[in-house]
């Protein structure tokens, strides 16, 4: 196969040339590929759908990690569900004030494979002493754990597939249970332009459990369709009204460089295009 053609949608698709195949696994359960593309760097696809690429993963990971953590301002304990490629862990750990990160990944093979074939995603994050990797079903973990967290990030796959349960009402309920007071959860919620139904569904389900439920967004070039939404759920309405100068102070004090995130982008990302506002009613 010299070309990867995404099979997410019936009438449209994006095509990436495969310049070199690093890893391919074809079983009756899934088809996973990690390959090189001249414009995108290393690309990982699962069952015909792009999961992550080296060239633009920073956008997704920075926005999912830094928006909730900087909004919170005092996050010490962070939970990541999924994120086996290590990119989310890498971004979360850049916050020196974060003392403990638990990452729950269902398949240890994903982590092993990512360490070997997508080394720039984790960039050593798995070896950080603040990182605690748990191999388990994310739904089981949030249901059973006694641990509590300030920020929960759900970095899952598509709702059609193994990640389905991470979009359920029960998942949102259990995350609320294990959030510390004033905490916030953020979840991957798809490309709204072509998947507006998923925005409505999450809004209904998550909205039952959090008094402040909305979405923020970022444009990720390789998630075809324009703007990707992230669901935001918190009972602390103050988190979304942190003024710009305070966010700037927190960002400067954190003292790391970013390539997409900035305090201005943070605030702007909550401004949703009218079609999403209309869909949310």
């Amino acid at each position: 196969m010299k070309e990867f053609q995404e099979t997410l949608y019936d009438a449209i698709s994006q095509d990436f040339r495969i310049d070199k195949m690093y890893f391919e696994q074809k079983t009756e359960h899934q088809h996973l590929m990690i390959f090189h593309n001249a414009m995108l760097g290393r690309v990982m696809t699962l069952d015909g759908v792009v999961q992550t690429t080296e060239v633009d993963e920073f956008i997704y990971h920075e926005m999912m990690a830094h928006v909730p953590i900087f909004a919170h301002g005092q996050a010490k304990r962070v939970l990541i569900i999924g994120g086996g490629d290590g990119g989310m862990l890498r971004e979360v750990l850049r916050h020196k004030a974060v003392e403990h990160v638990t990452m729950v990944e269902i398949d240890s093979a994903v982590i092993d494979m990512a360490k070997e074939y997508l080394p720039n995603h984790s960039a050593g994050a798995f070896e950080d002493e603040r990182a605690h990797i748990v191999i388990a079903d994310g739904m089981d973990y949030v249901r059973e754990t006694d641990d509590r967290f300030d920020v929960i990030i759900s970095d899952s796959t598509d709702p059609i597939g193994p990640g389905e349960v991470l979009f359920s009402d029960d998942f949102y309920a259990q995350c609320k249970r294990i959030l510390n007071e004033g905490g916030v959860m953020a979840t991957q919620n798809g490309v709204a332009f072509f998947q507006i139904d998923e925005v409505k569904t999450t809004s209904e389900r998550m909205g039952q459990h959090f008094s402040d439920q909305t979405f923020y967004s970022a444009a990720v070039p390789t998630y075809y369709g324009g703007v990707m939404t992230f669901a935001w759920g918190s009972d602390n309405t103050a988190l979304r009204t942190v003024p710009l100068d305070e966010l700037q102070r927190r960002f400067e004090s954190a003292a790391f460089k970013t390539r997409y995130y900035s305090p201005q982008v943070h605030i702007a990302s909550f401004a949703l295009p009218q079609y999403i506002v209309d869909a949310l009613g």
């Binding site: 196969m1 053609q5 099979t7 698709s13 074809k26 079983t27 009756e28 359960h29 899934q30 088809h31 015909g48």
Partner: peptide, 8 residues
Amino acid sequence: KPLQVSGR
């Protein structure tokens, strides 16, 4: 699935 056939 084990064959190299795109869903397309």
